[in-house]
């Protein structure tokens, strides 16, 4: 299948632009991995595509702003093209604000409350558009009630933003997740454990 221009290449999938019925879309395609045998490759790509779309639909259903999914292929998801900027490209002042990190915290709180763990929540996966923010890339997301998984979500965000920015993120998070106390307690526990120390990239 021919898509439009390639917009991004990830470990998990490639992103293309695609226009149909006069609408600009984004297609996320899990292309084959040459290193693994077809049986493993196909079953993993099929299962993860289905799971990602299902979790995106679930998140949208509880009011989290995610790109709308238009269509689902075996290894591809066709979704709304969100016009905006990835939050990691913003200036610190713009990023560390109620509108961006505060609102992202609120959305992660909603997700955790209903059993969705994002798995890769960093500013690179927050899109900032004119009418608010969107959470993107559910490629590593899981349906999970595990406090540990939720703690790891928070840890990843804490590692990726300034202290002030994380404070604003947490304000939003606490406001939308009634069990945030347990998760925050686990976050401190995780940080005390050896295996998560010295794991930042630089």
């Amino acid at each position: 299948m021919d898509y439009g221009a390639i917009l991004g290449k990830g470990a998990e999938a490639d992103i293309y632009s695609f226009t149909a019925f006069g609408t600009e879309m984004v297609v996320k395609v899990r292309n084959p991995k040459a290193y693994r045998i077809a049986q493993i490759d196909n079953s993993i790509r099929r299962a993860r595509t289905k799971k990602e779309a299902r979790i995106m639909a679930h998140a949208a259903g509880i009011g989290v702003r995610v790109p709308r999914v238009f269509a689902l292929g075996t290894f591809s998801i066709y979704m709304e093209m969100v016009k905006g900027k990835n939050a990691n490209l913003l200036e610190e002042k713009e990023l560390a604000s109620r509108r961006v990190l505060g609102s992202a915290g609120e959305m992660l709180g909603m997700m955790h409350s209903s059993g969705i763990v994002h798995g890769d929540i960093t500013p690179a996966n927050i899109m900032v558009s004119g009418n608010g923010i969107y959470i993107i890339d559910f490629g590593l997301a899981e349906m999970s009630r595990s406090v540990e998984d939720m703690g790891v979500d928070l840890l990843l965000m804490e590692r990726s933003v300034s202290k002030n920015g994380f404070g604003l993120f947490l304000e939003g998070y606490k406001g939308s997740n009634a069990s945030s106390g347990n998760v925050l307690k686990r976050l401190e526990e995780i940080k005390r454990r050896g295996r998560y120390q010295n794991r930042s990239l630089d």
Partner: peptide
């Protein structure tokens, strides 16, 4: 072998892109 090594390769590829 195919399963375990594919797992290692997937994690390695992710780290390769990240770093």
């Amino acid at each position: 072998q195919e399963t375990a090594f594919s797992m290692l390769c997937e994690a390695t590829e992710r780290a390769l892109l990240l770093t």
